[in-house]
């Protein structure tokens, strides 16, 4: 059984925000919600590195563990999805997530949270695959069509990779060997330990 993972190769990431925009494009994500964002460390000085961050689809997802209404579920290949109909917008998952993946669309002037929204690995939600309801609530379901997340498919330098963890690691290992340098599997220890 494959185990879906994201990996952002910090040696190739140029902070072009292609992944961010591809996600916005595919799922019509509203202003203010960034399912994916690029984080730059040491901006402007030698050693500058950028990494693209979204939901890591953790093995033992803290968001699922703390949800008071249990709206999260994990597919057999490790994609963590949630049900917006059950979500109460309490924000606990945001506190628990080490990557800041859960986002809340802005509401009225009183700043009240709405339904939690996060990266779905382009796998939609519990509604029927490819239905109009699923598209409106969660965005496109590319996995059901046999496609992979658009952010990784559209990465300008093929820095962001998404797919079965073994194959992803294989690609990355090949690159590291070619470069002869230290691996940079950022975030994997936190998300995939155990």
């Amino acid at each position: 059984m494959a185990r879906m993972k994201f990996l952002c190769d910090a040696e190739r990431c140029i902070e072009c925000n292609g992944c961010v925009t591809a996600c916005k494009n595919e799922h019509e994500v509203p202003w203010g919600v960034n399912r994916r964002r690029v984080v730059t460390l040491d901006d402007g000085v030698p050693g500058e590195k950028s990494i693209s961050v979204a939901c890591m689809h953790c093995t033992d997802a803290p968001c699922a563990a703390v949800c008071p209404v249990d709206c999260f579920y994990t597919t057999p290949d490790g994609i963590v999805l949630h049900n917006k109909d059950l979500c109460i917008g309490c924000g606990y998952c945001f506190y628990a997530c080490p990557f800041g993946a859960p986002q809340y669309p802005q509401q009225s002037a009183f700043g009240v949270r709405g339904k939690m929204d996060k990266c779905t690995f382009c796998a939609g939600g519990p509604d029927a695959d490819g239905s109009a309801e699923e598209i409106k609530k969660y965005g496109r379901n590319r996995i059901a069509e046999g496609k992979l997340p658009l952010c990784a498919e559209m990465c300008a330098t093929k820095a962001l990779i998404a797919g079965d963890g073994d194959v992803v690691a294989d690609i990355y290992r090949k690159r590291v060997l070619k470069r002869g340098g230290r691996p940079q599997t950022w975030g994997w220890e936190t998300a995939y330990k155990g």
């Binding site: 925009t21 916005k24 658009l150």
Partner: peptide, 25 residues
Amino acid sequence: TGQEPAFDHPFNLGAHCSKGASVRE
């Protein structure tokens, strides 16, 4: 309604930057 990556294209192999990924707008 949709923008799919053009993996076959010899220049970009499906890749886009933020501007290219946004053309559907």
